[in-house]
């Protein structure tokens, strides 16, 4: 087994005296190439935890290391942020330039990458998110999904090993969401980028390798999606809602139907019910 790319050892964190325990005793290892989904209610600590992964925040106690580099060490920050990129919720807040390709070039320019290399990275990144033909457009005239893909390209141009998506699909319509999810899955599969995906939408966790459920600053479940989704009553306690089909499967089981565990999609449900008929 390869060594973890991100490791949190017993970290705690609070923003101020009124909220001293936003994160409590978190131990976590993330392996290179994993697709991890973090779910939890508002205020459960998901985004705070994510900000630990690229040194936007450092823990009050405990340590976070990225590729062995301690994030609390100021001299490591530059390298950590190059390894771990982050895409936020609102695409409009992350786009800085007036032309798509200039926006994508912003990251590598700041890192002092040579111009020819920047050109190559920008082109490659825009092709990866399928926005190359829009390279000379003005970002504010693009759709939400397109803007979010530009934001992803901007991160790709920094060539990170890990990308954190902090509710990056929350503001998008179903199509834009699909577009962005597709892009993310492709990055994971083809470029072997480690993906940390934060969402309220449990259905987006279906394809993850591993789901972390957070509540009150702690990781309370850490398992494969199928194993998480069969704990519906617990999830409700943490103000999370099962995907509609998984919830229905659960209710049918309560009514005595013998349905196998892990029915999360319409197709699987149709198959299962047809067998019972």
């Amino acid at each position: 087994m390869s060594s973890p790319i991100i490791r949190c050892q017993d970290i705690t964190f609070g923003y101020d005296k009124e909220n001293p325990q936003v994160l409590r005793n978190i131990d976590l290892e993330i392996l290179p190439g994993e697709f991890i989904c973090i779910v939890g209610a508002n205020g459960s600590g998901k985004s705070t935890l994510a900000k630990m992964f690229n040194a936007l925040l450092v823990p009050d106690t405990g340590t976070v290391t990225v590729n062995g580099l301690t994030t609390a060490e100021a001299s490591n920050i530059r390298e950590v942020r190059q390894k771990v990129g982050m895409v936020f919720q609102n695409p409009d807040n992350q786009i800085v330039a007036t032309i798509v390709e200039e926006d994508v070039a912003f990251g590598p320019e700041n890192l002092g990458v040579p111009p020819a290399e920047i050109r190559a990275r920008v082109d490659q990144a825009l092709k990866t998110v399928d926005m190359y033909e829009y390279r000379l457009h003005a970002p504010h005239l693009l759709s939400g999904g397109q803007k979010q893909r530009i934001a992803i390209a901007g991160i790709l141009a920094i060539a990170p090993d890990v990308i954190i998506f902090d509710e990056s699909t929350a503001m998008l319509d179903p199509n834009g969401r699909q577009e962005v999810l597709q892009t993310i899955k492709q990055l994971h599969q083809e470029q072997h980028i480690t993906v940390i995906f934060i969402t309220h939408h449990m259905e987006e966790a279906i394809d993850a390798d591993r789901v972390l459920v957070m509540s009150a600053g702690q990781i309370i479940m850490d398992d494969k999606p199928v194993n998480i989704f069969c704990r519906s009553q617990e999830l409700q306690k943490y103000h999370l809602a099962l995907p509609q089909i998984a919830g229905l499967a659960d209710k049918l089981r309560e009514c005595g139907l013998k349905l196998e565990p892990g029915i999360l999609t319409v197709e699987k449900m149709v198959d299962a019910l047809c067998q019972l008929k």
Binding site: Q244, V266, M269, L273
Partner: peptide
Amino acid sequence: IGLAVPPVTLLCHNLKQSGF
């Protein structure tokens, strides 16, 4: 046009086609 129906709506539509 890029919109979905609610998952249970789709499910029941498909079940109906399978003879439910």
